[in-house]
């Protein structure tokens, strides 16, 4: 049974897994000149600088939300542009990719949604789908072009009676990953609940059976193995976002 990770759950998770706590941003800088220059010990993660960087992360969230256009589309490519082989990427090695039991899999819905009945895979596959060939850009800098097909998230949210004035859409995943996006990005026409990659049903390494494909955000905002969607006004955060990656991370 999928559980929605709201902030109180996340704190508990942090206790269970000490690695999952917020990391310092200032960094263990060993460059004497800059330490002299700023007069601060930058290796202290609770420093004024660390708090300032966290404040700037939130400032950058607001700036990016203001810059976001609900209609401007990410560049699309042709099949000839597709990157082969496509690179596997996760916060764990490929051997640890979860094998989800597709027959028993249900997409749970939670939060500000009228119809919370869980969805089985064939019911989602029966919905109208759209394809895209777009560039997936990793926060690390590399990028690759791939083809995905699936149900536009906006159409799905409207169908289940989600409160479209809510601020956040959160995703819980079968690989203990979680992430969340702003509602405006969720309703963008290229944001899809992908069922297919390269014209075949998602295989486990690509997040079977359901993943988010959102070309207006960085790769880590494209959660795989989705088991639950929650619509909420409380920011659900995310695995990397809570460690210190910029939450909005829009492209």
């Amino acid at each position: 049974m999928a559980r929605i990770l709201l902030p109180e759950h996340r704190r508990a998770l942090g206790k269970l897994q000490p690695g999952l706590t917020r990391r310092g941003l200032a960094g263990g800088l060993s460059l004497g000149a800059l330490t002299l220059l700023t007069g601060c010990d930058l290796s202290d993660d609770d420093s004024v600088i660390d708090r300032a960087l966290w404040a700037m992360l939130r400032f950058n969230d607001r700036v990016q939300a203001a810059m976001f256009s609900p209609t401007r589309l990410a560049r699309t490519y042709t099949r000839a542009d597709i990157t082969k082989p496509f690179r596997f990427n996760a916060f764990y090695p490929i051997e640890r990719v979860p094998q989800i039991d597709l027959a028993g899999w249900r997409l749970e819905l939670a939060g500000l949604i009228d119809q919370k009945k869980p969805w089985a895979l064939p019911d989602i596959m029966a919905l109208p789908q759209e394809s895209q060939i777009t560039r997936h850009i990793c926060v690390e800098g590399w990028s690759q072009i791939g083809e995905w097909r699936g149900v536009p998230l906006g159409n799905f949210l409207r169908r289940v009676g989600a409160d479209l004035t809510a601020r956040y859409v959160g995703f819980t995943c079968g690989d203990e990953y979680y992430s969340s996006i702003d509602m405006a990005s969720a309703l963008h026409p290229q944001t899809i609940l992908a069922l297919e990659f390269e014209q075949t049903a998602l295989s486990p390494i690509w997040g079977a059976p359901l993943r988010l494909r959102i070309p207006t955000k960085l790769g880590f905002k494209n959660p795989k193995f989705i088991t639950a969607i929650t619509v909420t006004n409380e920011n659900p955060g995310g695995y990397w976002e809570d460690l210190g990656y910029n939450w909005f991370s829009g492209s």
Binding site: L25, A26, G27, L34, L53, G244, N246
Partner: peptide, 20 residues
């Protein structure tokens, strides 16, 4: 030793702060 931020997340936070 001659980089800033300690890890990728920290470095991006520095980069997108100093940018402004």
């Amino acid at each position: 030793a001659i980089t800033l931020g300690g890890w990728l997340g920290g470095a991006i936070a520095w980069h997108l702060t100093a940018m402004w």
